[in-house]
Design a protein around this nucleic acid. Structure first.
Length: 270
DNA sequence: AAATTCTCCTGAAGGC
DNA sequence: TGCCTTCAGGAGAATT
């Protein structure tokens, strides 16, 4: 499931193939994604040139010379550069480029998103109220601390809230909390400033480490050329229920917190 | 306002 | 072997 490192890997992967290219047309085979693909997509993008590819949280933004495309990969989405029109099930949308190649969105579970907007995509309702980028200035422990006062929500859900910080999904939330020694179910308002600083550092470290590896792939993640891009980074806790904690040896525990499976070490995290 | 629940969908995994 | 059931998962929307 693509989280921030995976989405950034995709962005870097497709960027050199699409920037400067003119879009000939779009082919929409399945418009029913998380939201319907913008009606008349092909008409909107035909003849437009891709000026740059940006990322905001887990959203990819294709800035065109007029308008922009907002794309989200949900949990099973992938974008690839393909040579022909031969497609497989779940290949929902193609952007046909002027060199004949295609940027193809595949998304079996259809939790993804592809929207066209005429305005600044950063002002789009889906993006307008997003929190800071974890790898940029503006995200730090002091901010987390200030924002969490009085909040009873579990700290894990707190840092997975895109209004608090973008790009931290279920996997890296568990990993960062382990690295910071914070119990995932602890109320967000009861985490000290010092520990929020450790958590912010942990979030950055976990994301950077994964990004350097081209993204941690657990399931459906593939890179722009279709390579699995699997990097078997040893996750410390995620998916390791029952296995020994790498730090203290006690078995890693799994618990559902806020509708999401959470992995942690009861010995190392308080 | 904040927190929780619901929802979309399919592939994988588990049960029998 | 195969059919049926259950469930994960991003994140906005709806509900409490």
């Amino acid at each position: 499931m693509p989280e921030l490192p995976e989405v950034e890997t995709v962005r870097r992967g497709i960027e050199p193939h699409v920037v400067g290219r003119r879009i000939a047309r779009a082919v929409v085979r399945q418009r029913q994604l998380r939201r319907p693909v913008t009606p008349g997509l092909s008409r909107r993008v035909a003849g437009r040139t891709v000026e740059r590819v940006e990322r905001r949280g887990k959203y990819l933004l294709l800035r065109l010379d007029r308008g922009a495309l907002i794309c989200h990969l949900g949990m099973s989405g992938s974008l690839r550069i393909v040579g022909g029109e031969t497609c497989e099930p779940h290949d929902h949308v193609d952007l046909v480029l002027d060199d004949g190649r295609r940027l193809r969105l595949r998304d079996p579970r259809r939790f993804g998103l592809l929207l066209w907007t005429a305005a600044d995509p950063h002002r789009h309702p889906l993006l307008a109220s997003l929190g800071p980028e974890p790898l940029d200035d503006g995200f730090d422990g002091d901010r987390l601390h200030a924002q969490s006062r009085g909040r009873a929500v579990a700290v894990k859900n707190f840092i997975m809230n895109a209004r608090v910080v973008v790009g931290v999904g279920n996997i890296y939330a568990s990993e960062a909390l382990f690295a910071a020694g914070i119990h995932p179910a602890r109320p967000a308002g009861r985490v000290s400033r010092t520990r929020y600083r450790a958590l912010a550092d942990a979030v950055r470290q976990v994301l950077r480490r994964s990004l350097r590896a081209g993204g941690t792939t657990l399931r459906d993640f593939v890179r722009e050329d279709g390579r699995p891009g699997y990097y078997t980074r040893a996750l410390d806790v995620y998916g390791r229920a029952g296995e020994p904690c790498r730090r203290c040896g006690k078995p890693v525990r799994m618990r559902v917190i806020g509708q999401r499976s959470s992995f942690f070490c009861g010995g190392c995290q308080r």
